[in-house]
């Protein structure tokens, strides 16, 4: 029984959600990983260092640049005969590609697993995490996406796997990459940060998110948001935390001017410590907060910045 994990990477190495997917795969047995795209030297070297990985497959081909769904799925299907389990992180990339692979293999995918019970049985959240379902697959092969917040990612270093080039056959040319608008930030990524500070509709305007900056700087935090804040145009879409945004489980989550709708809670309620700052003492966010501060955020945030500065 061997698993294959599709990895995502950038200039700084293998991304944390992918390292969490490797952690899930190693619970199942021997683990191989795949890097696909162009100029893969550094990514392949980084993948080979992941602890617990036995082999790195390197698929270098222009058709695989930008991990387009159609060719990447075709590649995974071509590699599938050697594997019992095919995994990726529950990210935009993993969600885009793995169901396509599953359908081509006539398999029902197992989306967003939060735990591995055995080779056929997994726990996954349903109804925005209001239920945890234990599901058993009867398919010969399992196609799985892995909830990053539920598995401790393997370290970036420590392993020494062999690498092997795979030849890529004819790829479906159904889609073309046009452009990307990716935000550059000095801050850690939301799904990898130890601390997340999120703002909601209560922030009232995009420029007020600046009030979160000194706090995030001091705590080394990523900045997130509720859907309402994203919809109002205060911050870009990639800030959204929740059922249909990013799932985070940092050591500390600070929710500012966020009411605590189920869909938002679904994305952060597994955080270790939750702080809520809201002027409405009835706000549902206080039901999940370890520490609640009933206050106007426009007073509380500058005070908090100053207090953190002092201590």
């Amino acid at each position: 029984m061997t698993s294959l994990v599709l990895l995502e990477f950038d200039d700084s190495g293998i991304k944390q959600p992918s390292r969490a997917a490797v952690a899930a795969a190693t619970q199942l047995g021997e683990t191989h990983v795949l890097v696909a795209g162009v100029n893969l030297g550094a990514a392949a070297a980084a993948a080979a260092k992941l602890p617990g990985v036995a082999k790195v497959l390197v698929a270098e081909n222009a058709a695989l640049d930008h991990v387009l769904a159609e060719p990447t799925a075709a590649l995974l299907v071509a590699l599938a005969p050697n594997y019992s389990h095919i995994l990726a992180a529950t990210t935009a990339v993993g969600k885009n590609i793995l169901p396509r692979v599953a359908a081509l293999l006539d398999v029902q995918p197992i989306s967003d697993i939060a735990a591995v019970v055995d080779a056929d049985t997994f726990v996954r959240p349903i109804y925005a995490g209001n239920g945890m379902a234990t599901v058993k697959s009867s398919d010969g092969k399992k196609v799985i996406t892995v909830r990053g917040a539920s598995f401790d990612p393997v370290a970036a270093e420590g392993g020494n796997a062999a690498t092997e080039n795979v030849t890529v056959g004819d790829m479906p040319g159904l889609s073309k990459f046009v452009s990307a608008e990716l935000s550059k930030s000095e801050r850690p990524e939301l799904t990898a940060a130890r601390v997340v500070v999120s703002g909601g509709r209560g922030m009232q305007a995009g420029e007020n998110f600046k009030l979160l900056d000194p706090i995030a700087d001091k705590l080394g935090a990523a900045v997130g948001a509720s859907r309402a804040a994203v919809d109002a145009g205060f911050v870009p879409n990639e800030y959204q935390v929740g059922q249909t945004g990013k799932i985070v489980a940092p050591e500390l989550y600070v929710a500012v001017g966020i009411s605590g709708a189920i869909q938002h809670l679904a994305g952060m309620k597994d955080s270790k410590v939750i702080v809520a700052i809201n002027k409405d003492e009835e706000a549902p966010i206080f039901q999940v907060a370890d520490y609640g501060l009933v206050a106007d955020l426009f007073n509380a945030l500058p005070e908090l910045a100053a207090e953190l500065e002092r201590s």
Partner: peptide, 19 residues
Amino acid sequence: RLQTLKVEEPPKRKAGVKV
């Protein structure tokens, strides 16, 4: 192809405090 063996409540958070 997936059989649901059981559905459980997610772990409940302990009630916190107001500061």
